[in-house]
Amino acid sequence: MEWATDKQDILLRVEGLYKVFPQHRNLLQVLTKQPEKLLKAVDHVSLEVVRGEILGLVGESGCGKSTFAKSMIRLLEPNGGTISFDGVDLTALSREAHRKVCKNFQVIFQDPYSSLNPRMTIGKAIEEVLLYHHVCDKLEVAQRCKEIMRQVGLDEEMGSRYPRQLSGGQRQRAGIARAVALHPKLIIADEPVSALDVSIQAQILNLLLKLKRELNCTMIFISHDLRVVRYISDRVAVMYLGKIVELAPADELYQNTAHPYSQILMQANPSLDPRLRKKNSLVEGELTSPIDLPTGCRFRPRCSKAVDICSREEPELRRLGPGHFAACHYISPNGSEIPNVVKKGTDVT
């Protein structure tokens, strides 16, 4: 199936990606030979990332968005599926060969405090990346490091400080510096602004957009903040319990939300207008356990629109419009256009 809007330059193509975490069994369960339970964190997901775009990935905690992104670049070893990055089949590469290509994709983590070595100064941490991948001559490393720090808006003197001596925003800048040092083709930003205060968050968002322009790279932006995702992304994928349930260009997703789960997410997001205050919550139930998935559609237990077929058949992603896909029986029983019942006004938030 063609996922992107048009025939475009695909940087990363993931097909049927599958990642499970076996659950711990206690001694009794082992002795009675009970089967091992599996947590399906990513359940046969296919996705294409277009070169130069920012793809947003949203969903509640535990829906597998981080696992999905990490499996895409084999930071976590997937259990199945194929990954093709810029024409190279990543899944077929040996560990050694993978290490050589992995400078093409870098990750920015949510909490730079735990992803930076506390006993290494910021400068050393950035130089380490450069040296490890032999991107420049040893003599040039210090100079290059300074350039990168300037690029992410860190003062030169910060290079001699330790992570604990920096503020949250500065630490995140250091984490970003490490990621962009290698001029990666793909940056995976895993909740890069979630731990930051609003004013700092805006600084980092501006920085990410600036770097993306300067380095001409592609980005997968993971967040649970719908407003931030809409702001930064070109396309957005909504994940629920290890599956992508809706995929669309950002504004299309927010204006013509199709999947009942996406609708719930949008409605639950607090509005910035006190006059639009809601009286009742439309959200029912909590995230279902990803270990014992319901039959049929995995959103069925929380869905107010569920009908008979939802418990029997698992819906596949279907095309609703240009670049707009959703996995729901209710929306397009015959695979045609979005019926009016789920079409919402322009103001969805």
Binding site: V198, A202, L209, R230, S271, L272
Partner: peptide
Amino acid sequence: EGLMQSLPKDNGERGKLNPIQGM
């Protein structure tokens, strides 16, 4: 004002954010 200008808007406007400078 700075706090409010730091937030992406509800209507999906994509103008540059105006964060408060400094710390």
